[in-house]
């Protein structure tokens, strides 16, 4: 790994976890690993093919740019040097869910803005040469498996008569808890 000093190794490790989770959720709809019977109102996948195809994570030094969907600009910027996360999305409902997940799971302080969510509080572990705290970064990348097709999942959920907004939001959080349990590392 000596030739990888140009990019933060903790970001790389966390990114590879995100890649593994998204790939497995896409390949087998998550079905063999997750109990989704109560989470999928229709026989729909967690991600649409259209949203999964453009996913990409690009790490340069202490910065990462994660493309999380197919809409232009649907991305997340992670700036480790500033301890900052910027999630870009125009869907208000998704932004609210992402704010909650980021605050609860990544332990950062977030604000919902017009075009996304802005968070502060990425840490570094004292005594380690590289920026970043690996468990927190893994938690962040685990959360970043969620926004892909979240708007579609929300739409499907809300179309069903009797499903309240609160219920559909809770479903997303339940889905995340299953992902967290299935992919601790």
């Amino acid at each position: 790994m000596a030739d990888q000093v140009a990019s933060n190794p903790k970001l790389i490790e966390a990114c590879l976890l995100w890649d593994k989770i998204t790939r497995e959720l896409q390949e087998d709809f998550g079905a063999p690993r997750l109990n989704l019977s109560d989470l999928r109102p229709r026989d729909s996948a967690i991600y649409s093919d259209r949203d999964y195809a453009p996913l990409a994570c690009r790490i340069d030094g202490d910065k990462a740019e994660v493309t999380v969907g197919s809409s232009p600009g649907h991305a997340t910027h992670i700036l480790l040097d500033r301890g900052n996360i910027r999630y870009y999305d125009t869907d208000r409902a998704v932004n609210e869910i992402m704010k909650d997940l980021l605050e609860e799971e990544v332990n950062v302080k977030c604000t919902v803005l017009e075009g996304g969510v802005d968070c502060e509080g990425l840490k570094s572990k004292v005594g380690e040469p590289q920026r970043g705290y690996l468990p927190q970064l893994k938690a962040l990348f685990r959360v970043l498996t969620m926004p892909t097709s979240m708007d579609l999942r929300q739409e499907f959920c809300r179309e069903i008569v009797g499903n309240t907004e609160e219920y559909c939001v809770k479903r997303e959080k339940d889905l995340f808890q299953q992902i967290k349990k299935t992919y601790p590392e």
Binding site: D3, Q4, L16, D19, L55, A56, R58, I59, D60
Partner: peptide, 14 residues
């Protein structure tokens, strides 16, 4: 040539 790629992750190596 300055990037390494694995799955959907890529990172600068030089």
């Amino acid at each position: 040539g300055k990037w390494q790629k694995e799955g959907k992750c890529s990172w600068r190596i030089k």
